[in-house]
Design a protein around this nucleic acid. Structure first.
Lengths: 112, 112
DNA sequence: TGCAGACATCGACAGGCATCAATCTAGCCG
DNA sequence: CGGCTAGATTGATGCCTGTCGATGTCTGCA
């Protein structure tokens, strides 16, 4: 597959609160994709571990989550593709941080 | 099954922003359940149709969504179980409204 | 009382996803 | 250079979920 196949769509960054106007099919699709990234207990705990630490290495995620290394790697990938976290490789380790802008969009979508 | 089997857990109503402290497994589970209700394009459009109208009958949902009546009924049920909408039967029709309190909880969880 | 319409439920099918073992890749150290 | 370790990728497996046709239930109306 191409490297950008599941990149977050630009339309996901532009939506006003859902009470303003019905979502288009395209917007609903990309937003559902973002919410799907949050619809897993492991990913929510992963995100909160990163958010609470500010920055966190993959090697410090497998133990608290109680999941195998491939599983954790899979979940970090999903969160990256949803634009919710960003990773930085430093030497042998990868450090993760939350991507505040995207989190902000998701939070604000449901504002009344 | 019992009528309350999939009711939203009380713990889902009490969570502070995820950056404050890592989520417990139980909280992560119930929150993931709520996000899963939003992780479908049809349900997002359904929710936005209801939110934009204030109140909406099931009979006015199948056409704009382009889904069959059983499918729409399934999705409204999922949103009700997530606490995101409430339904009221009046005569032969069922009218749906958003449940602001739960929507508020979901929106606020990601606050930085 | 009997009929028609609105909605829920059931059963079945297809597609997607979480998980792990095994393997691969890349950077560090002796 | 050779071994070691962190992390990504692959492939297989089992479960969950979206969808629809068929059917059931209840309400209003003639």
């Amino acid at each position: 597959m191409s490297a950008t196949a599941t990149q977050p769509s630009p339309s996901a960054t532009c939506c006003s609160p859902i009470s303003d106007a019905p979502l288009s099919e395209a917007d609903a699709g990309s937003l559902a994709h973002t919410y799907a990234a949050l619809a897993d207990p492991v990913r929510l705990r992963l995100l909160s571990l990163i958010a609470a630490s500010g920055e966190r290495c993959s090697c410090d995620l497998t133990d608290p989550l109680g999941k195998s290394q491939p599983t954790v790697s899979h979940h970090t990938k999903v969160l990256v593709e949803a634009g919710l976290i960003v990773g930085e490789k430093r030497g042998r380790w990868t450090y993760w941080r939350v991507a505040p802008s995207r989190v902000d969009v998701v939070a604000r979508l449901l504002d009344a």
